[in-house]
Design a protein around this nucleic acid. Sequence first.
DNA 1: TCAATAGTGTCTATCAGACAATATCGG
DNA 2: CCGATATTGTCTGATAGACACTATTGA
Lengths: 240, 240
Amino acid sequence: MISEEEYLQQYNINHYTTPLCSVDVVIFRLHNQQLQVLTCARKQHPHIGQLGLPGGFIDIDQDKDLDATAHRKLHEKTGMRAPYLEQVGTVGNPQRDPRGWSVTVIYYALLPGTDIQQQTEDVRWCNIIGDSVTEQLAFDHNHLISQALERLRNKIQYTSLPVYLLPEEFTLADIRDVFAAILKKAPPMRSIRNRFLHEDLLEDTGKKRYGSNRPAALYRLKKTAKAHFYNRLYHTTQQE
Amino acid sequence: MISEEEYLQQYNINHYTTPLCSVDVVIFRLHNQQLQVLTCARKQHPHIGQLGLPGGFIDIDQDKDLDATAHRKLHEKTGMRAPYLEQVGTVGNPQRDPRGWSVTVIYYALLPGTDIQQQTEDVRWCNIIGDSVTEQLAFDHNHLISQALERLRNKIQYTSLPVYLLPEEFTLADIRDVFAAILKKAPPMRSIRNRFLHEDLLEDTGKKRYGSNRPAALYRLKKTAKAHFYNRLYHTTQQE
DNA sequence: TCAATAGTGTCTATCAGACAATATCGG
DNA sequence: CCGATATTGTCTGATAGACACTATTGA
């Protein structure tokens, strides 16, 4: 029996058959009331040229942990730091990648909403229709989007996540519109109001948004605010 | 530029530096009102001889997906199929394994409670004290237990999971005791009763458990019952 | 009978939601 | 003024929980 020192000295991961291991990030944003996911054209085999999620292999030298890998992928494609990033889960099987048994850790991120067309370089924002995007993505990326979306649809019902999809200043009706965009239905304004104003979560900017109606108060997330968890679900927005 | 066929033909995962990838399972049970986790002595380097979670590498030839790996590990160590198994998340960093950057997918399982000592072969049931076991486990396995336990502590507050830690027939007071064992506090019996009997989840066996007091009705999970999600938390058991 | 635990009745608190009433803008 | 949307007031319903009361066993 050899010692642990000797074992580690001799150990070479490349002598073993291990699965591929990657990280994929589902980046959501709202664009003109439409929920979108960022995709980019693949520059390498397999599925070269096809759209896919930002993601790929862990950089053994650079990434200090899995979250760092996800942050890095996000930053490479958007140049931004996301106000919300969360791990969804991990899928692994021999079919999802033609190179063999492969494992990928799924993250999702929420970016502040925007009405501005930017459409930079090689990235493309795809509309969410149903439970994924309509484009045929590389690997099982359509399915990964479904999983992230399912988490998002559940989680907005008992957390303050909707505000992370909005610009810095927003009205309560904007929150309702986030629900409508993501769930195709929204809780009544009374309920949204009760919830989001009751907690010490938002602050009134004092500013108003004007239209041809009574102006709406503009709120902003408090600097100290963390993602907030409520202890009930809405009734009107539950899936059955 | 080569074709995808050529690329795949030439592709050999062993030419790349990829992280280690494993699955670890945190198997919970209740034993005499004490929450326990199954550990086993490691038979190989690294940390040979030390206690660790059941788990290890994916069997590329045998496992059809990650869940299958988790089920296999569970079955190898317990000879049982768990009534509840769920993926918790995935951790990865260069420190957790002396062989290098490593990723592990954490699962947890709930086994029916038992008062019987079995203590077979090489496995050992460790008591949960605080947020992990007191034994010093291999790798970061104490920390993996904490993560699984945190999920369990949250999830029993809005689901029917407590029943998966009980034997086939149980009383409502047994459910309360599950809460007490896991959270060190329990919701009032009135609330447990309201919740578990209101849904179409349990059925009365007609049998009673006798003691030196009024006998308690024995219930059983309906065959058709899936894990049930309630839409509120208990108030008295929330962490703050 | 008593001790002990099971189970019920009833009232309160919290919060989602229905719905009506009122407020404030542009035009 | 009117139409539109914001905001408030008030009542109802669901359900957790407090608490007192009743039920049923063994000793």
